[in-house]
Design a protein around this nucleic acid. Sequence first.
DNA 1: ACATTAATTATGT
DNA 2: ACATAATTAATGT
Length: 239
Amino acid sequence: MNTNRRKRLSARIDPSLLAHIPPFSKLSTEQIGEILDHAVSRRYEPGVTIFEEGEYADRFYMLLDGYIRVVRISPQGERVIALHIPSGQLFGIAEAFGRDTYPAAAVTATEAVALSWATEFWSEFVVKYDGFATETYKVVGHRLEEMGTRVLELATQQVEQRVASALSRLINQVGHKVDRGIEINFPITRQDLSEITGTTSHTVSRMLSAWEKQGIIASKRKQITVLDSAQLTLLCEAN
DNA sequence: ACATTAATTATGT
DNA sequence: ACATAATTAATGT
């Protein structure tokens, strides 16, 4: 398999790449330079596990390109996709939760490029760089909030509403506009959707087929386009 | 209202 | 040609 083509290339990363993303946006060019000096850049193939749940959290990451999934394994051994993370966000930040192990696995949904730092630098970053802490905890807050509402959905709503909600979130967070509608930016299978919503791929398949006939979505293999987002939002609240 | 099973077909390398 | 993804129907809880 494709093994460690790890590169150290702090010098090759353009500081302006980080300058506009929230945790670093308030920092000077020199400060960003310092940060990059300690960073390791790495490219990942799609479907690769960056770190496992429960693993000792020796590094934290900033996703520069691509998408990653945050995946947990239930006690029954079932995969649950908790979250999708787009580029420009930190992940694997166990330190922010006061943990020393990762609470979930990170798997690439696409090809991806990420910077990473040894966790020793976390506390240093927090005290040394103004705005780093506040901005990252803002992101952490949003994620916790989202996972909270998802847990609520799982408990209360029916399957159709859950996959409709999941689709809505996906096109909002990781969707991109095309001529016919909005499509999800990375390959996604019915199996993936079922792991987001806690169903089976068959049930998802039947629903997507039905929605496709109604003209709400269009789909190919590993690819979904939402044509009528208004109708989709209606499905989220259907009784 | 949904999962499970199984059989069948479609699609990408 | 092969593996993986998607569909569909039938049956079960």
